[in-house]
Design a protein around this nucleic acid. Structure first.
Lengths: 210, 210
DNA sequence: ACTGCGGAGTGACATCTGTCACCCCGATCG
DNA sequence: CGATCGGGGTGACAGATGTCACTCCGCAGT
């Protein structure tokens, strides 16, 4: 059904993954407007996107990060692992160094922000197809600046604390002692230069480290 | 400049306010595609939108809620206060009863969710123009369920507390005493059935009461 | 076998939080 | 006028949180 809509035979075949319906449908329409681009499927979650990539072997997967079932990053990892030739471009709201780092590690070839205008998206996709890596410039810098100072234990503890769980309850959940949890939190707070757990949580989250 | 692009003379003149550039430009393009709709300006924040409404007196303002400088709800209130005849339609990610309630109080004529497909948007705008109120059906119900138990002081205090500001600092910022702030927080925590400020903040926020 | 190191824990201390009972004062109502 | 109410405040107390110094243990290295 995507072959009779006036696309040139060599058009770039794209699978789009984005959970917000409004944006999904708007982007599908816009991209399909370009004669050399062909959105062959638009998916609302990571699982559907994975199936679509598997079934249709598109040239490109254009994906959000925060989606139900499977995130865009997990999707990218899977695609790399299975050696599928579909190139992955991430399009996300989150200008977080941690996300970009993880995306690049997963072999993603493009990382764009949702606060760039739509026109740039089509251009970026063409560049990517020609083999150019496209990363939003602000982020390319940020990614090499700070790296996540937290270790896995601190992350786990901070994540729970950020949801309002008390030190005692965190200790119970993680089978640690009350005091140890507080030590970890204290370390995390120190490393992040925060004044308390709430601020620490916010900072870590906004950097994409949580 | 918006008169020579093939719109019919009676086309609906629309100002669009949405902070995410990708969505903003995509919607502008899509809506302009409809011959009877004319996006005369697309703004990235509430302040710009306010100026645009003032200057252009459009038929419709289509606005996001969470935007820099001035939220969509504040914008709606202002428009109502000044007696401007522009109708306001809110388009947001947030299916929160509190937001809808406040929007309706501010005289908004449409409240749509970003997880409806784009085609519905144009339809909704036409309906609104014909004088029909359009509210996303799931929400219309939810809006009458629980009502916001917090008063303005509790809201202000809780908002700051949720950002990691300590009781003492909140007191300083709001010119209240240390103890009073804690009293307000305590009330808020109680009313929301939370265990501490962090949980209270999360609950209030997710209900759209913050 | 001695050393070093990282994960986990303890104990003590100063603050911060959450709760509650009660006070003060200006407005509003009967 | 007296009663009552709401915003704001105080003081006291228990418990939670943040910080630090120090211990214990297992597991590399050499």
């Amino acid at each position: 059904m995507s072959r009779d809509d006036g696309k040139s035979p060599g058009a770039l075949r794209i699978v789009l993954a984005e959970d917000q319906a409004l944006l999904r449908s708007a982007l599908t329409t816009l991209l399909n407007f370009e004669p050399d681009l062909d959105v062959v499927r638009a998916c609302a979650d990571g699982e559907a996107a994975w199936l679509a990539v598997h079934e249709l072997k598109p040239d490109l997967l254009v994906s959000d990060i925060e989606m139900p079932v499977l995130t865009g990053l997990e999707l990218a990892v899977r695609i790399a692992e299975r050696g599928i030739r579909t190139k992955v471009v991430i399009v996300t709201t989150f200008a977080r160094a941690g996300y970009l780092r993880r995306a690049l590690d997963a072999g993603v070839v493009g990382y764009l922000l949702k606060d760039a205008p739509a026109e740039q998206l089509a251009d970026a996709l063409r560049k990517v197809q020609r083999g150019v890596r496209v990363v939003d410039p602000q982020l390319a810098v940020a990614a090499w600046s700070e790296s996540d100072p937290l270790n896995e234990r601190e992350r786990r503890v901070l994540r729970l604390a950020g949801e309002g769980v008390s030190a005692a309850d965190i200790a119970a959940q993680l089978h640690l002692s009350h005091g140890t949890v507080r030590n970890y939190l204290s370390e995390a707070i120190g490393k992040l230069g925060a004044a308390n757990r709430i601020e620490a949580y916010r900072l870590a989250r906004q950097k994409g480290w949580l």
